[in-house]
Amino acid sequence: MIDYPSFHLMQFFEGYVRNYRRLNLSLQHNRSMFTSREIDYFARLGEWLGFESYIEDSKINKLDGRSRPMDLSWWKMDARIDKENYISLSMHLERENLSKKDEETIEKLFTETEEGYHPEHVIGIQYVDDFERIDYLNQMVLSRNEKLGSHALMIYRYYDQLHDLDRIKAYVFDPQSCTETRHAIAKLDQSQFWYMCFEEEWENSLGGNRAGEEVCVSS
């Protein structure tokens, strides 16, 4: 068996932040367009990395006894190992606009499923009501991922009324714990298009104040 190295998932978040302005999302776009373009960004990224990307792909949910669509999947093909079948589900991504569906999003990412449908990596991108909600959701990720054993990147977005911007909080998990965090902000530029930059860059250039220090939750 060929041993493929795991992705450095935080690099995916860094690329997402650096390239966000290129998605051309303006003040006029609704949240459905945000979902569409962000999923399309990761679909193209998967293809550039050599995977086969599928939007609204299906995955067996054992608890429901039926298939349930994945917003995006990356599948690995290697004829040196198997000439007819994909050798792994390399990534499962979910993108959710509604904060009231934050728990449902995690359930979809970490559902009990059939052999062959266990994703090596998962990415969740979702809106939450506030920073306080994130700790609860991260504890849920740790609990649900005990059986699945995936490497995970969870990206949370919420509105910071004090500074009139969106806060973006990213957390990387291995199967046992949270291992890394990175923070960014999202704002409208002078042309009323959304861009992102890392929190420390925004603070250095504009004199912003840090909205509290965030750390990984403990397992």
Rank of each mutant, 00 (worst) to 15 (best):
Y4M: 01
G65K: 04
E146C: 08
L109P: 04
H29N: 15
I134H: 01
D174W: 01
I2L: 10
F7A: 06
S58P: 01
K108A: 09
K59G: 11
G207S: 08
M154Q: 12
P69F: 00
Q11Y: 12
A211F: 08
L93K: 00
M70H: 05
L63P: 02
L23H: 04
R37I: 00
F110N: 09
V141W: 01
W74K: 07
E96F: 02
E120W: 06
Q28N: 14
N85Y: 08
I123Q: 01
P119R: 03
Y16P: 03
E213A: 09
L45Y: 04
E84D: 13
E84N: 13
A211E: 06
R21T: 06
M91W: 03
H163K: 14
Y159H: 09
I39F: 03
L206N: 12
I60A: 14
I106G: 03
G212D: 00
V217K: 00
W75K: 14
N209Q: 13
Y117K: 12
I55K: 01
Y156M: 09
R22C: 11
R31M: 13
P119D: 03
F42G: 02
E84S: 13
G207T: 08
Y4D: 00
I123M: 10
A211K: 07
H163V: 09
F173E: 04
T179H: 02
E107I: 07
Y158K: 02
D129F: 06
N97G: 10
D189S: 10
P5T: 02
I185E: 02
T111L: 13
E132H: 09
R18N: 14
I81A: 07
D82Q: 07
I168W: 03
S177T: 14
I155G: 02
H118S: 10
F34V: 15
F131D: 13
S218K: 11
M91C: 11
N61D: 13
F173D: 00
L27E: 14
G50M: 03
E14S: 09
A211G: 06
H163P: 01
L45M: 12
G212I: 06
T105E: 07
K100N: 15
R37G: 04
K187F: 01
K83L: 13
D3G: 07
E199C: 02
K147D: 14
F12S: 03
A186V: 05
C178F: 04
L49T: 02
Y159V: 03
E203W: 01
L142Q: 11
D64C: 00
S58T: 13
S58C: 09
A186P: 01
Y117E: 15
Y16F: 15
N61Y: 00
L93A: 05
F110K: 09
E94Q: 08
R133N: 10
Y16Q: 03
T111M: 12
L137H: 06
L142R: 11
L153A: 05
M140D: 10
R133E: 12
D102P: 03
H151L: 09
L49I: 02
W75M: 11
E120V: 01
Q176A: 08
G149P: 09
